[in-house]
Simulated assay, not measured.
Amino acid sequence: MHEESASNLPASLLARARQRGGDVALRHKRLGLWQERTWEQLLAEVQGLASGMREAGFVVGDSLVILSRPRPEALLASLAAQWLGGTAALLDPLAPAEEQLTLLRELEAGFVLAEGQEEVERVRQADSLPRLLFYADGRGLADAGVQSYARLAAQQPDSALSILAQGERPAFSFHRLDGEGQAQQQCLSHIELLGEAHGLIEQERLTAAEEALAARTFAASGQARYLLAPWLLAGFRLNFPESLATRDNDRRELGPTLVLGTHESYGRLYALAQQRLPLPGSLLRRWLDWALTAREGVLRYSFGYWLLLRPLRDVLGLSRTRVPLLVGEALPSEAQAFFAALGVAPRAWPETPRWQATRTLRPSIAAWPQGHEQPA
């Protein structure tokens, strides 16, 4: 059960650590092996990061700019910034280099988490001089001006460090350029995220037994709304693939019960399935088409399911999926019908980003609550 009293994301983490401290909360595949961390370990890591960031000068209202693909370090650094009353400002790591550079220059960020060498160099190219620049990739960088995430997180956590996050303040801010090159941002508050997470947990009956795969980039509001916040409230296990390139293999190995996808990600799985299907007109393809449309008769459906549909779900890594979620644009009718026939029809959840044009993207703007007028 989740606690109704938690009014912000770090408070939810603290509640899970007290309630389910020894349970595995997060796994990340590295060098082919799944590395596990418990709720207690996550709490200590976030507190260590928060202590190190505070020593570097991070205060209430500051933003931590994150330029990274999906990985635990990006998530836990976000929670550390929020613990200190700040905002995690997310840039799309797959956006064109010039867009990233423009946004980095506009933000003039004082605190930056960069994934590795390439991202660190991009921060430098933006002529940015952060007070704290640290990197997530554990392979290390020969650069005296950059700290490693591991070193920062290894600091002795200050258990007396109070949670400074406030429910109405933004937990995450997202940044992009529109078609005309105008900088835009959107913010999601702690209260908004937790409220939507409660709704998802209740409607989809999520429990601590779920296995979820965090394969989408963090720089998307749907991931914060329907994966990260529910994870903190329901206390299920969150899994990170080794890389975006290995996510399909990692999904097949994991067999997640909760899958969060978009028009693009489900479309990619649909295309992958089509490549694996027998050629049209062949005997096997006729059997499969028959199985995909079979719903009458227990014997007929059972035959189609165990002979054809179940193996196809295994190939896609959806063998155990019971909560397939879709955010954003709807799927084409043929793709939706295909997944429905497999028994994993994606259920649509709203993602209505409130992008706002900004004359400047200085971190202090992200600290203003939703609905409040920002300073000129």
Rank of each mutant, 00 (worst) to 15 (best):
E73P: 00
V112F: 10
A171I: 09
H175S: 08
Q374G: 07
C187V: 10
Y270H: 14
A171M: 10
L129F: 06
T358I: 10
L113M: 08
E196C: 07
E204Y: 03
T38D: 05
I66N: 00
R131W: 07
R362H: 15
P350A: 12
W231H: 14
L254R: 04
Q186P: 04
L177I: 08
S63F: 00
A97C: 04
A337K: 09
G52R: 08
D248K: 07
S173E: 11
E168Y: 01
L9W: 04
A11L: 13
S319E: 11
R69D: 11
F58R: 02
L194W: 01
S243C: 05
R276I: 02
E334N: 13
L233K: 13
L161N: 03
F172L: 13
S51A: 14
S243L: 08
A245M: 09
G255P: 02
T262S: 15
G116S: 11
H372D: 12
E121V: 03
R354M: 08
E180L: 12
R347F: 07
I163E: 12
A357D: 09
A114N: 02
E253V: 02
L232I: 03
Q274T: 09
Q41T: 12
A219Q: 10
A136Y: 01
R359L: 12
Y135C: 10
A80E: 02
Q82E: 11
A15E: 13
S282E: 00
S221Y: 03
I365H: 11
P130A: 01
Y149V: 02
L258A: 05
G222H: 07
L325Q: 08
I163G: 04
A340C: 05
L94D: 15
R131F: 02
A160L: 10
A171C: 10
I201R: 13
Q223S: 10
L238M: 03
A337Y: 01
Q182C: 05
L133Q: 03
V344G: 09
A17P: 00
L260W: 04
R359Q: 13
E192Y: 11
R205D: 12
R205H: 12
A97P: 00
L133V: 05
L232G: 00
A142C: 01
P96G: 05
D92R: 06
W290I: 00
Q19F: 10
D314T: 09
V46T: 13
H190M: 04
L258T: 06
E192M: 07
M1Y: 07
R276H: 15
C187L: 10
A197P: 08
P346I: 04
Q275P: 00
R310V: 02
L152D: 00
A183H: 08
E3F: 09
Q203L: 12
R237V: 01
A50I: 09
V60L: 05
E253D: 13
A17Y: 01
R69L: 08
R322K: 08
Q166R: 12
I191L: 14
S159G: 04
F111W: 06
W39Y: 11
E264A: 14
R216W: 02
V46L: 04
A341G: 15
L26I: 03
A208D: 10
A17T: 02
H2F: 13
L233C: 06
E192A: 14
F218Y: 15
H28G: 01
D62T: 04
A136T: 01
G343K: 11
R322M: 06
P93W: 03
Q82A: 05
P10I: 07
A44L: 13
G21R: 07
S282Q: 01
T38Y: 02
V298R: 13
L326G: 04
A376L: 12
P96R: 09
R169S: 09
A219N: 11
L325V: 15
